[in-house]
Design a binder for these strands. Structure first.
Length: 553
RNA sequence: GCGCCAGUAGCUCAGUUGGAUAGAGCAACGGACUUCUAAUCCGUAGGCCGAGGGUUCGAAUCCUUCCUGGCGCGCCA
């Protein structure tokens, strides 16, 4: 709809240049067309005349008049007028809008999907929590946002892969192994002293118990081998928990990528050699450094520590280069905001190795402040004082939990009060949206009972939809595809949430004001077609965000 | 000290990337169930868009200086 109008305007502009009624020849790549807040200003509005005022050196309103003359007689438009300083407002013919209903009916669950992404390959890496303990609520936000960003990109025609990076190498894994081993010895009757820096949470004991049951007792192996064995066992077990939790949250990964495998394949050393060859790394104080300051970082960063072990950064270099080797045009990392200081070195590394820094997009998810009865709930893995994601989902419900995490822009902090979330579960906004869907389904049941079925759109008389609120609903439905595109290109899935709330509000209002099933069958059928288009769009949007669309509530 | 994010109604937040009279939910107040599901609707009230300066036809939005809150600034992960 919008695009058709944009083309018409472009043609008109061309015509004006051709007959010299406008002279600058200036072309704006993107003619701005927006939907005015005030419906009195028409269905669409452009500031084109204002923007051309300078190059044309003419009053905006004069330019607008010329353009309108060229647009006269266009079948799309019912009325075109000049307003304010030189806005051109378009009111589209009602018949144009009815075409949207045909489109929705024809496309069904595909309505809202587009090909803007044109198959561009994007990887979204998210969650990637260390496999040393169960997921907590902070991971939940990143998980839902990452999943929704991926979904929205897919809907916009990008080819998307969801990946979980498994940090199964490094110190924290050794700590996990040591902690399990100590608990194991404890189970075997040894007196142990649990160190401050070990993982003290109770689940470590569960792991030890399971280890003992499945692997037997550790005898005749060195300390290092014992730790390694416990660590591998622990990682595998914890990853199973994580996968189950994510599944119950409706999140599925296409790929689980092991950090350890980067070392095993020698990819880390390979990249380090490349960096050395490019003269980007240097040795100092017995460590190997990357000269990230050359690309805008505030200090150089260590790749290999003076004790010979690798930093996280070293494997991240290899990991991200490997992503591009796999053919992704763009790579999105979803991180907690507390890692934001890490971005400059990553971008510097990419620049150094010949990739445009824009190819990596880091989405920072601000903290979730977990509250219980209004009081902050301090969490720490080591202390074992945390609430797992699973517990939260069980308490609040999957749909409500996902909805809650998606309701805000990811760069603003989120207060999550468990008591409040539970209390509100009956008037939570997610139910408001789902209820709209259930209501349409209910109307359908009633229609079927009275022998009225949904007819093919070519026999529905849409001209019966002449009430302003009916036209407004259709216009809202027409905005769905561009909302999805906007959400995808800006990585802002919350836009879909707000769209859903708007659409549901309009529907509920219509429902209360007008009956769908009235005495006149022609009108009933037209209204039935309308509300079923609403149902389709609600269902598509809910599905996109991993939310259910119940038929009864 | 430096950097990132935020500051919009009493509270929680949107604001289509610079447009016309700044919006919604909750809370408050007043109404609507004999009617397709009241988990709904209708109405009232609520604002110096943190503060100052700048850019232009036009600023909540852009540039700048401050103020407040959160988070970072390791040869930790």
């Amino acid at each position: 709809m919008k695009d058709q109008l944009r083309l018409a305007i472009k043609a008109a502009l061309q015509q004006c240049y051709a007959d010299n009624s406008l002279v600058s020849g200036e072309f704006l790549d993107e003619i701005q067309l927006e939907i005015p807040k005030n419906p009195d200003h028409g269905d669409f509005s452009t500031n084109l005349a204002l923007a051309l005022a300078k190059p044309e050196r003419k009053a905006p309103r004069k330019i607008a008049e010329t353009l309108i003359a060229a647009l006269q007689g266009n079948p799309l438009c019912d009325r075109i007028e000049i307003a304010g300083p030189g806005f051109i407002n378009f009111r589209l013919a009602a018949t144009c809008w009815y075409a949207v209903l045909d489109q929705i009916t024809a496309q069904g669950d595909q309505y809202g999907r587009s090909k803007i992404g044109a198959g561009t390959k994007i990887q979204v890496e998210f969650v990637s929590a260390n496999p040393t303990g169960p997921l907590h609520i902070g991971h939940g936000r990143g998980a839902v946002v990452g999943d929704a960003v991926a979904a929205v990109l897919q809907a916009a025609g990008f080819e998307v892969q969801r990946e979980y990076y498994v940090n199964d190498a490094g110190n924290q894994i050794l700590t996990l192994g040591r902690s399990i081993l100590l608990r194991l010895r404890e189970l075997q009757g040894e007196a142990i002293e649990f160190p401050e820096d070990g993982y003290q949470a109770p689940y470590i004991i569960d792991l030890a118990v399971k280890y003992r049951a499945e692997q037997g007792e550790l005898v005749g192996v060195s300390e290092a081998e014992a730790i390694e064995s416990c660590a591998r066992f622990g990682v595998a077990e914890v990853l199973k928990w994580i996968e189950v939790d994510l599944q119950s949250f409706g999140i599925h990964f296409d790929s689980w990528y092991s950090e350890k495998s980067l070392y095993d394949q020698g990819l880390v050393d390979e990249e380090l050699i490349k960096l050395k060859e490019k003269g980007l790394s240097f040795e100092e104080d017995g460590a190997l450094w990357l000269r990230t300051t050359e690309f805008g970082d505030d200090k150089d960063r260590v790749l290999i520590k003076s004790d010979g072990s690798y930093t996280y950064f070293a494997s991240d270099v290899a990991y991200h280069m490997e992503k591009f080797d796999r053919g992704f045009n763009r790579v999105i990392d979803v991180w907690g905001a507390d890692h934001h200081g890490y971005i400059p070195r990553m971008k510097a590394m990419l620049a150094g190795l010949g990739h445009p820094p824009e190819a990596l997009e880091v989405l920072l998810i601000q903290m979730v402040n977990l509250l219980r009865d209004g009081k902050p709930y301090i969490m720490g893995k080591r202390s074992g004082n945390f609430i797992t994601l699973k517990e939260v989902i069980d308490e609040v419900g999957r749909d409500a939990c996902r909805f809650f995490f998606l309701m805000r822009r990811c760069d603003s902090q989120l207060d999550f009060d468990l008591e409040l979330a539970k209390q509100q579960s009956s008037d939570n906004p997610v139910y408001y949206v789902q209820y709209a869907h259930a209501r349409v389904c209910s109307i359908n049941r009633n229609a079927a009972e009275s022998g009225m079925e949904l007819l093919p759109s070519d026999v529905v008389d849409y001209s019966r939809l002449e009430l302003p609120e009916e036209l407004a609903l259709v216009k809202q439905l027409a905005r769905f595809p561009e909302t999805v595109v906007g959400a995808a290109l800006s990585y802002e899935p919350h836009r879909i949430i707000f769209y859903l709330q708007d659409l549901a509000a309009q529907f509920h209002s219509y429902y209360n004001r007008q009956r769908v099933l009235v005495d006149d069958p022609i009108t009933s059928r037209a209204r039935l077609a309308l509300v079923n288009s609403v149902r389709t769009v609600l269902a598509n949007a809910l599905q996109l965000l991993g939310l259910s669309a119940p038929e009864r509530m």
